[in-house]
Nucleic acid binder design. Structure first.
Length: 926
DNA sequence: ACTGATGCGTC
DNA sequence: GTCGGAC
DNA sequence: GTCCGACGACGCATCAGT
């Protein structure tokens, strides 16, 4: 059997041939000239017309094998033939003769005759790889002539009403099809520039059209404007006051198309096959197996299998299964499994749980609501623990993870890439609610979860949803590539979810449960539910970074088995911020008192270290492996290859805790420099070489957690430090210097010293303390101070979210530009005000609004705030060209008015000072 | 090839 | 990172 | 004390549209 793979494009490994790949490849077949197929490949197979169109879309040189339709040719020892696909002008299918097997790849295609595309042709083939953009039965297009008639009457009526009809269709293919449809009906088409350009190429290749004109802004009256969809709401169209816009697309059969595209009408004229034609095509080709691609690939494959045709969706996620099936002769995972399983359960051959019609996910959501309803922590814990006890061992880890506001465990690096934007679109799509109604609901809540509830309420037809299915939903959202694919998955789920279920899906997606319960209380609930000591549960969760696995261990009474081990990162110990050296010292004196008043006298001192402005990192090293983890237990090994290289030179197996800083002798590097390396993807050695050269880093170690098989978590900091000092460090590794202190004055002095070293502040640690992962206890403190404060004036206010939904809690503020006298924005903040102050300001701003834009309003600039921050630097975010790091409101300066606020010039001075302190010096480490 | 919007993770 | 609020 | 939630700026990746 021919091997078929999918990796952002179909790949035939045995032939080393790519079919419509997304990325540049050495050797590829390009079915047609739409942009998503255009990449700078080295060598391509194309039809003649596609070659011509490509030339205008992607200039540059490449080797082209231009094949005529219907003739068998040999390219690189490969026998193949192109067949017209009927999709757009020049679009081709690729038919391959591979020994005694044949393969037909359709590319995009349609069966209905088009007026501007060649009529499709086909041959029988053993393997069919087909596009299934419209592979759901609800996509059945009306007869073409009927749609054309509708479009024509739309245009005529619009013109008669004295308005301009605007038809939106892709500039290549769809626009020309529309143009042909208007032939002989007495209308004059006017073409947008990009449409015009493509149409001219069609003509050069022998296609003829009715008379048309090119777009001229002052000549649109009485014409039919044909534009690409991207022109909608563009400058060009906004200049036409009286118009009606229609989208021409297969998606027009969706009842909500008008809202989705923000147009006045939508007509289902498509250059793709509809559902019925997809089915017919399979009948024509009589393949032994089918691979489906694009759109509703999985659903369509499922339908084909129901018809007795072997069919699989070709997507990234099925890759592994396909591979397995070749090797093991096992069946791939069946996307129809849900269906068959329910069928089985009705015959009584399945677990009672499956046949239970009540929705498990709804039960989960209801527990969440009950927890939200009570402010009492103990009551929350009780509700949750009762629920946890009811769950199966399979459900328990999933649910406990959900209750921490996550779809995946903390130590699980997978992300969903589904945010507010995708959620909003899918809620609209699933309910077909109109824009105005949606926005009025959304504006009322400022909470995506609540919005979801109200939007979905009574607009969906709920079906039971099991916990395991919910897990699968999140997993497939993670696997799906691109917002569109994700949106489709989510929309399908919303349309069969109850309002409450949808709300909780959204809560998990956004990571905001907002039920007053998170990891800490979940730990307590697990302890209570399974009668395990709480500290063991906490310990296990710290070590595992996986509340679900912790719960599973608790259920089996095995929590004590969790142990610190190499390559299993643990949460790091955190420090509590304190405002002054005196307040820090007070903490230790108090502890001493409890201890009989003389504890400190008998102890040498407390430990002080500089606080470095970098990224907290945990480095694990064995004899043959090194990994680096971030504060959130994410593997960041790939970002720092030179540290990994150096770490192989340690003599010991160890886990060290420290900070990675941007560092080079004689050069001032900042946190922002470091950030440049952080999000970077780790493919390509060149990239590393360059990144490392740009921003050299150092690892500053300040704690040792594990050494040669021995956990040091339960030894004192003093002991850990002693052990750390004995470790031989490779280059680029340093140990943070510790000094002792015995008074507030010494702390203050060390803090100043740290700042002189250009470090962020000071860490103060109890030398006798154990390492407590994940807690911000009273053993480590940090001392940071603001760089300066600015007096600024509030120029805009926004409604908050969640519990701040009904108050204007978000303030944008400005400084004065002395040269123009104008107010220039410099930052945003709310942090620092009490609820009462926010309430008061809300009232004030409501009465002093200059312009109301819904959730956001510009306000009269008369409230002066004193804003503190840790640094100030150039930025494009705000009009002032400056931005503040960690801005917070120190005070409302009621004694001041707009005229006495600080100036842009002063802010620039601060920024200059901030940047220049450091010119030639580099921060001191040890 | 460029740009803006969105999402994520760092502080 | 920051901060205030609730238990 | 501890946890929770509501917020800041930045840089990079990815996608979708020019």
């Amino acid at each position: 059997m021919i091997e078929v793979r999918y990796e952002r494009g179909v790949y035939l490994p045995q032939q080393n041939l790519w079919l419509d790949p997304w990325d540049a490849k050495p050797f590829a077949f390009i079915s047609h000239a739409h942009n998503d197929h255009v990449a700078p490949h080295e060598e391509i197979i194309v039809s003649q017309r596609t070659a011509r169109l490509l030339k205008s879309r992607l200039p540059g040189r490449r080797i082209e094998h231009i094949l005529p339709f219907g003739e068998k040719r040999r390219v690189h020892g490969l026998d193949l033939m192109l067949l017209p696909a009927g999709h757009i002008f020049g679009s081709a299918q690729c038919f391959l003769f591979l020994g005694n097997e044949t393969l037909l790849y359709t590319g995009d295609f349609k069966l209905r005759p088009g007026k501007s595309a060649e009529q499709v042709q086909w041959r029988e083939a053993d393997t069919l790889i087909m596009e299934t953009t419209f592979g759901l039965s609800r996509y059945r297009f009306p007869p073409t002539q009927q749609v054309v008639d509708q479009i024509v009457s739309f245009c005529r009526e619009t013109i008669e009403a004295g308005e301009v009809p605007v038809l939106l269709g892709y500039s290549l293919g769809k626009a020309q099809e529309i143009l042909c449809s208007l032939d002989g009906v007495g209308l004059t088409p006017m073409l947008h520039g990009s449409v015009y350009q493509m149409t001219r190429i069609y003509e050069q290749l022998g296609q003829s059209f009715c008379k048309y004109v090119r777009y001229r802004a002052n000549d649109v009256a009485g014409k039919v404007l044909i534009c690409p969809p991207s022109a909608n709401r563009s400058h060009m169209l906004e200049r036409i006051p009286r118009k009606r816009v229609a989208m021409i697309s297969g998606w027009a059969v969706d009842p909500n198309a008008v809202y989705r595209y923000q147009v006045d009408a939508a007509f289902p004229l498509s250059d793709h096959a509809d559902y019925d034609d997809l089915i017919r095509y399979v009948d024509f080709v009589r393949p032994r197996r089918v691979f489906t691609l694009h759109g509703f690939a999985a659903a369509f494959a499922c339908d084909l299998r129901a018809r007795g045709v072997e069919a699989w969706a070709l997507t990234e996620q099925n890759q592994m299964e396909l591979h397995l099936s070749a090797a093991d002769n096992a069946l791939p995972v069946d996307p129809c499994a849900e269906v068959s399983r329910t069928a089985e359960s009705t015959q009584g051959s399945f677990h009672k749980q499956v046949s239970d019609t009540r929705s498990e996910f709804l039960a989960f959501a209801k527990v969440g609501e009950a927890i939200a309803a009570t402010p009492a922590k103990l009551e929350k814990i009780r509700l949750l623990s009762d629920y946890l006890r009811e769950l199966t061992s399979e459900q328990l880890p999933v649910i406990t993870t959900y209750f921490t506001g996550r779809a995946f465990a903390q130590s699980d690096p997978r992300t969903l890439q589904v945010g507010w934007s995708v959620i909003v679109r899918t809620l609209q799509g699933a309910t077909k609610i109109d824009d105005a109604a949606f926005h009025s609901i959304a504006a009322r809540h400022g909470d995506t979860g609540k919005t979801a509830f109200e939007v979905l309420d009574a607009r969906t037809t709920p079906r039971p949803f099991t916990i395991v299915e919910s897990r699968e939903l999140f997993e497939s959202l993670h696997r799906a590539r691109g917002p569109l694919a994700k949106a489709q998955l989510l929309q399908d789920r919303f349309s069969i979810s109850s309002a409450r279920e949808g709300q909780y899906i959204v809560k998990i997606l956004t990571g905001d449960l907002r039920i007053g319960l998170r990891e800490g209380l979940v730990e307590e609930a697990i302890a209570k539910a399974f009668d395990v000591p709480l500290d063991q549960v906490k310990q296990a969760n710290m070590l595992l970074g996986d509340i679900g696995e912790t719960a599973a261990l608790a259920l089996r009474n095995e929590v004590h088995q969790a142990q610190l081990s190499l390559f299993r990162p643990i949460k790091c110990m955190l420090a509590t911020p304190l405002p002054s050296a005196e307040s820090v010292w007070q903490r230790f004196v108090d502890v001493g008192d409890v201890d009989g008043g003389s504890a400190l006298a008998t102890q040498p001192a407390i430990f002080l270290e500089d606080k470095f402005d970098g990224i907290r990192a945990q480095l694990h090293r064995s004899a043959d492996r090194v990994e680096i983890y971030s504060r959130d237990l994410r593997r960041i090994t790939g970002q720092f290859p030179e540290l990994v290289d150096q770490a192989t030179n340690f003599q010991e197996k160890l886990i060290v805790d420290g900070e990675i800083i941007a560092f080079e002798e004689g050069r001032r590097l900042t946190f922002f420099d470091l950030q440049k390396r952080l999000g970077r993807k780790s493919d390509g050695e060149d990239l590393f070489a360059r990144a490392a050269a740009d921003v050299p880093v150092a690892f500053v170690a300040f704690d040792l957690l594990w050494l040669n098989g021995e956990s040091l978590l339960r030894t004192s900091l003093r002991e850990r430090r002693a052990r750390l000092s004995e470790v031989r460090l490779p280059p680029q590794f340093q140990i943070a210097k510790v000094v002792s202190a015995r008074s507030a004055a010494e702390i203050e002095q060390a803090f100043r010293q740290a700042r002189r070293h250009l470090n962020e502040g000071l860490m103060i640690k109890d030398p006798e303390s154990l390492y407590l992962p994940g807690t911000r206890g009273m053993f480590w403190f940090k001392l940071k101070k603001e760089l300066a404060t600015l007096d600024v004036v509030v120029v805009a206010a926004e409604l908050g979210h969640g519990k701040r939904n009904n108050v204007l809690s978000d303030y944008t503020f400005a400084v004065r530009d002395e040269t123009t006298g104008g107010l220039l924005r410099i930052g945003k903040a709310y942090s620092g005000l009490t609820d009462a102050e926010i309430a008061e300001l809300t009232e004030h701003f409501k009465q002093n609004t200059l312009a109301d834009h819904g959730r956001y309003r510009e306000v009269k600039p008369d409230i002066v705030l004193e804003v503190a921050f840790n640094s100030i630097q150039p930025s494009a975010r705000h009009a002032s060209g400056l931005a503040l790091r960690f801005p917070r409101i120190k005070a409302i300066r009621r004694d001041k008015n707009v005229d006495s606020i600080d100036t842009l010039q002063y802010a620039h001075e601060l920024a200059a000072r901030d940047a220049q302190i450091q010119q030639s010096v580099s921060p001191e480490v040890a």
